[in-house]
Simulated assay, not measured.
Amino acid sequence: MTRRRLLEASLDTLSDVGLAGTTVSAVAARAGVSRGAAQHHFPTRDSLVEAALEEFFAERTQQLRSSVAKLSTGSGAAAVDAVDEVVTLIFGFFSNRPFHAALHIWAAASTDDSLRELIVPAEARYGREVYQLTALALNADLSDQHTRRLLGLTLDVARGLGLGSVLVDTRKHQNDAIKTWSRILDGIKRND
């Protein structure tokens, strides 16, 4: 229970004040636990950030997996609606507080070699998982090179919109992008 509260508080702290302000003491205070209890679970900020990232990626992947399982499937008009649902889901995963917290960590990792060593493999695993789940949700034929490229671009567009949402309200732009990108993805090759 304490560990869980610390991990949640670390993501909130990262999102609010960035990596520089995310200390074990600040996270402990936010979680409502003593510094000693926090250090029992996470002796250093790096160990706390690493665990928070692993938890973040595991939770986000599980949430996406569950959401994909709930999406409707079909053909014709139902398939177009399903594409809209998938694009809305994917874009939403890159435009929220947990994503904003991750951005702070990625920015810090650009100048911190030890942090980069933690981030790059975790981000690569997460990216592959999101890509595979997106392909599954769209019933995409991954043997088709054009389809694979469009799926990769989908994640790039989602990340870009998510990055923009850190500074300004991008909801209207994101809604327009979802409509446009859904029409583009409606033409991908699908598995039979």
Score class of each variant (00 low, 15 high):
T2K: 04
R3T: 06
R5Q: 13
L6K: 00
L7H: 02
L7V: 09
E8Y: 01
A9Y: 02
D12P: 04
T13F: 03
S15I: 04
G18K: 01
G18H: 01
L19D: 00
L19I: 14
A20G: 02
T22M: 03
T23S: 12
V24R: 02
S25T: 13
S25G: 10
R30S: 03
V33Y: 03
S34Y: 04
S34M: 04
A37C: 06
H40F: 13
H40Q: 08
T44Y: 00
T44K: 03
S47W: 06
L48M: 14
L48D: 10
E54K: 10
E54Q: 14
A58H: 11
A58Q: 12
Q62W: 00
R65Q: 15
S67V: 06
L71A: 06
T73I: 05
G76S: 04
A78K: 10
A78E: 12
A79W: 05
V83A: 03
V86F: 00
T88V: 02
L89T: 08
F93D: 12
F94A: 07
N96G: 14
R97T: 15
A102V: 12
L103P: 02
H104T: 07
D112G: 06
D113Q: 12
R116P: 03
E117M: 11
E123M: 13
A124M: 10
A124I: 09
R128M: 12
Y131D: 05
Y131W: 11
L133H: 10
N139A: 13
Q145L: 14
T147D: 02
R148Y: 00
R149K: 06
L150S: 15
G152S: 12
G152Q: 13
G152I: 06
D156S: 14
V157N: 01
A158H: 07
L161A: 00
G162I: 01
G162E: 01
L163H: 04
V166H: 11
D169V: 01
K172T: 15
Q174R: 14
D176N: 10
D176W: 11
I178G: 08
T180P: 00
S182H: 04
L185N: 09
L185V: 07
K189V: 15
